[in-house]
């Protein structure tokens, strides 16, 4: 199976975040960047699908500035064969529609004569969280898709896949998709592996190519911020409602104060 996996590099949301000077995004200085959580699971699922056959390969794609090459090198160390960096200022600031347009063109360009049997993405990015890029990508590629996928079983020698899709309230739907398809993976589908030292050494020699807007033959007005219908005007912390009464002191003092509140004020103990 030939597998394409799209990954995104996002700010570590555990980090202390601050609004940038222009107010339109966070200040990225000093913030660590990581591979988006559900994309890590998508990559692992892609590696497993490729490894199940004798001739599998995984090509990993990512759009973003220079720092994104770290995420791509990590994907190569985990077992991807080749990486493609969508590297052009014209790609920056895109909404789900503009970003998917670029990814679809890159995947089509790299598909070769055999094409990809499956395209995997995460379900949602932990930064802008549109949850939509993979589905739009499927539309551009003319492939069926499923979002929030918690299980993939390739069937009929790669002609179809049995897919488990998460629904609300703890229910899953089992469905069958014809392949090739775009499968948008939910966090928790598998247990992602760690990179081995051997993998990290091998990754240094694996190809990492970059593609710009001109390579994709797309007019820059269709890409990035210029090609988007959404424009972020400002970002900020949620306006605080009343907020919690914060109980101060060392752990023992704070715990005692809390229990007193729960007994006397909230009357729940």
């Amino acid at each position: 199976m030939r597998v394409a996996v799209c990954i995104k590099q996002v700010p570590d949301t555990e980090a202390r975040l601050q609004v940038a000077a222009d107010g339109r995004w966070i200040d990225e200085e000093e913030v660590p960047f990581v591979i988006n959580e559900s994309d890590e699971y998508a990559l692992e699922e892609g590696l497993r699908i490729a490894e199940a056959g004798e001739t599998g390969e995984v090509v990993v794609f990512s759009l973003g500035p220079q720092r994104v090459t770290e995420a791509l090198r990590k994907a190569l160390a985990l077992g991807a064969s080749r990486a493609v960096h969508l590297d052009d200022d014209a790609f920056a600031g895109g909404d789900a529609l503009a970003t998917a347009r670029a990814l679809a063109a890159a995947i089509s360009k790299e598909a070769g004569d055999e094409g990809f049997d499956v395209v995997l993405t995460g379900s949602q990015s932990d930064d802008v969280g549109y949850g939509s890029t993979g589905s739009v990508l499927a539309g551009h590629l003319g492939l069926p898709h499923a979002w929030l996928v918690m299980g993939v079983e390739v069937e009929e020698g790669g002609k179809s896949a049995k897919v488990t899709r998460e629904m609300e309230a703890g229910m899953n739907e089992i469905l069958r998709l014809a392949l090739p398809a775009v499968i948008e993976v939910q966090a928790g589908i598998n247990k992602p592996r760690y990179a081995s030292l051997k993998g990290i050494m091998q990754a240094k020699r694996k190809p990492l190519d970059s593609l710009g807007a001109a390579d994709l033959g797309i007019d820059a007005g269709q890409l990035g911020a210029a090609g988007s219908r959404l424009e972020v005007v400002s970002v900020g912390f949620p306006e605080s409602g009343e907020g919690a009464q914060i109980l101060e002191g060392d752990p023992a003092e704070a715990a005692r104060a809390l229990v007193e509140k729960l007994q006397k004020e909230a009357r729940v103990l």
Binding site: D95, S132, W147
Partner: peptide, 23 residues
């Protein structure tokens, strides 16, 4: 904004050329 909506409405935007504003 449900799992069902997100599963298809992005695709509908692509198909119709509409803009997309999730959540």
């Amino acid at each position: 904004h449900t799992y069902q909506t997100v599963d298809y409405f992005a695709r509908l935007a692509q198909e119709t050329g509409a803009g997309l504003l999730p959540e």
